[in-house]
Design a protein around this nucleic acid. Structure first.
Lengths: 113, 113
DNA sequence: GACCATACATAGCGTTGCTACGTATTGACG
DNA sequence: CGTCAATACGTAGCAACGCTATGTATGGTC
């Protein structure tokens, strides 16, 4: 997966990975790698600053803990974060349809709405 | 369409709009607006520099002409540009599948490969 | 003791697209 | 004839974003 491809869509991925419950940064990376079949292997230098950004923006909330002698910061979606995720999803659907229609000459997946 | 959403995918769109024959910048903008149903309305400050970039990279080649008293620069895909477009398409398919699977919990469009 | 996996963090950089502006011609409208 | 919209090109400067490289520290394994 080329680097810059992700631009503008990272936040959505991070929020989505937190949807089913709190996770810490390292775990988010592993989760995304797993669900993408290894195609998405985000560097820590991408994820940690992004999580800080999302927290500052009030979309997630972090809490320190210590597990097996290692400190962790587990993040949880806020109500605002959930709304943002839902917007990201909608934006992605539109975006994918538009780019798909240009690149592939068709609607990638007909939008049921 | 939010601004930054496009990052990293603009080149593919521009190359695709030149696939069916030469076009000048203004015409590329109109074409993309048309095929996207008005959702994609690229500012000239985005398109012209991008076309220059693509030309410098050898993916397209421009030629000046004058039509109805107005100067135009019509761009045409080079062989290298065609190869790049095909790579962009493949990259898009992979990318859309990955993001789709994370955001929507499924493969948006199963990849036939 | 060395090394890898786990877990966090930041500085600095390059790319990218946008905003805002500027130039020039043609044609329509009053 | 003056004004304005559409056509058509261009650039400077900016802000956002994600990556690379690097650093710290612990626990488990060999």
């Amino acid at each position: 997966m080329r680097a810059e491809t992700l631009k503008g869509h990272l936040d959505g991925l991070l929020l989505a990975s937190l949807e089913d419950g709190p996770r810490h940064g390292y775990s988010v990376i592993e989760e995304l790698r797993a669900v993408s079949g290894g195609q998405l292997d985000l560097p820590t230098g991408t994820v940690y600053p992004a999580l800080h950004r999302l927290e500052t923006a009030g979309l997630i909330q972090g809490r320190w803990s210590v597990v097996a002698g290692r400190r962790r910061r587990a993040y949880q979606l806020t109500a605002k974060g959930r709304r943002a995720l839902s917007k990201e999803r909608a934006a992605w659907t539109r975006f994918a349809a538009v780019v798909g229609s240009v690149l592939e000459g068709r609607q990638p997946c007909p939008d049921p709405t």
